[in-house]
């Protein structure tokens, strides 16, 4: 249903293998409001896919359907070829995905280190010492080793978000889901978070990112999906979507953002 260039689709990273995430006819209603109107798309292993589009177009909803924070009204979501379980067993699948929230959602009663350790110790039953080492390693990776004993209330927004990323990474996920990770940040701190995300991308992490940061998408994404009113109207490599959109609606959206390349 979305507009795309067939050759570009074929040339996608790891295309042809089982996609790590696949959406088949995904429909999501909130009461009478249909927010996702039948999504057919997939994300390949190792791809960085950015979801862009106007507010309310369904991008965040699709992300949240991916790790079953929202229940699906119709259609299927497949993770690594298997449909998401519809019962409590879905939490075993959730362990293999990491999610980073716009509002960070660090646990305020725990230090940064304890936050990062919370997944492995609680969910995986990892011994505390091992979890601590792992957590310190991840905090160093995001540049916050010196803030390990700080509480979230003592950290800036950018620092909190980086801790949140470390917390998700501690579970060794196969996919990282980012829901507008920088939308709640001051402009000065957006860069530090985007840098961490770029590092992850360079290391080959599969990432699904809902974002308004168009230059980040242009530089880092392997594939871009443009949303409008509950559907993907266009998808393709960033060069095509941003510089030569196939559809008028995508072109309008980008020009409204003042996107000039």
């Amino acid at each position: 249903m979305s507009a795309f260039d067939a050759a570009a689709m074929k040339a996608r990273k790891n295309e042809g293998e089982t996609p790590i995430i696949a959406y088949q006819g995904l429909v999501k209603n909130f009461g009478l409001l249909q927010v996702l109107k039948g999504i057919d798309a997939h994300v390949n292993r190792g791809e960085v896919v950015c979801l862009i589009g106007p507010s309310g177009s369904g991008k965040s909803t699709m992300l949240r359907c991916t790790n079953a924070l929202e229940t699906i009204t119709g259609g299927t979501v497949l993770f690594d070829g298997e449909p998401l379980p519809s019962d409590d067993k879905v939490r075993f699948v959730r362990r293999r995905m990491g999610m980073v929230f716009q509002s960070f959602e660090l646990f305020p009663h725990m230090t940064a280190l304890a936050n990062v350790m919370s997944g492995p110790t609680t969910v995986l039953g990892m011994p505390t010492a091992e979890a601590r080492d792992k957590a310190m390693g991840l905090l160093s990776k995001v540049g916050l080793a010196d803030k390990a004993e700080s509480y979230p209330s003592q950290l800036s927004g950018g620092q909190q978000q980086r801790v949140a990323i470390a917390r998700s990474l501690a579970m060794d996920p196969q996919v990282m889901l980012f829901d507008e990770p920088t939308s709640a940040l001051d402009p000065e701190t957006i860069g530090e978070v985007l840098n961490v995300m770029k590092t992850l991308a360079d290391e080959g992490m599969t990432m699904l990112v809902v974002t308004h940061e168009m230059s980040f998408a242009r530089r880092v994404a392997d594939w871009v999906m443009v949303f409008d009113r509950g559907q993907i109207i266009e998808e393709g490599p960033p060069a095509q979507v941003f510089d030569a959109p196939l559809t008028d609606r995508a072109r309008d959206f980008l020009s409204h953002l003042g996107w000039s390349g």
């Binding site: 959730r94 990491g98 646990f107 969910v123 949140a164």
Partner: peptide, 29 residues
């Protein structure tokens, strides 16, 4: 906030774990 529960869910925690480790400590404070 609901986001706290969602963060716990995203890490793969069960509802009981979320209640015990995330919600109750904050509620008590």
């Amino acid at each position: 906030r609901a986001g706290q529960t969602q963060a716990g869910l995203s890490l793969g925690m069960s509802r009981a774990q979320i209640l015990q480790k995330i919600l109750l400590p904050q509620a008590v404070i």
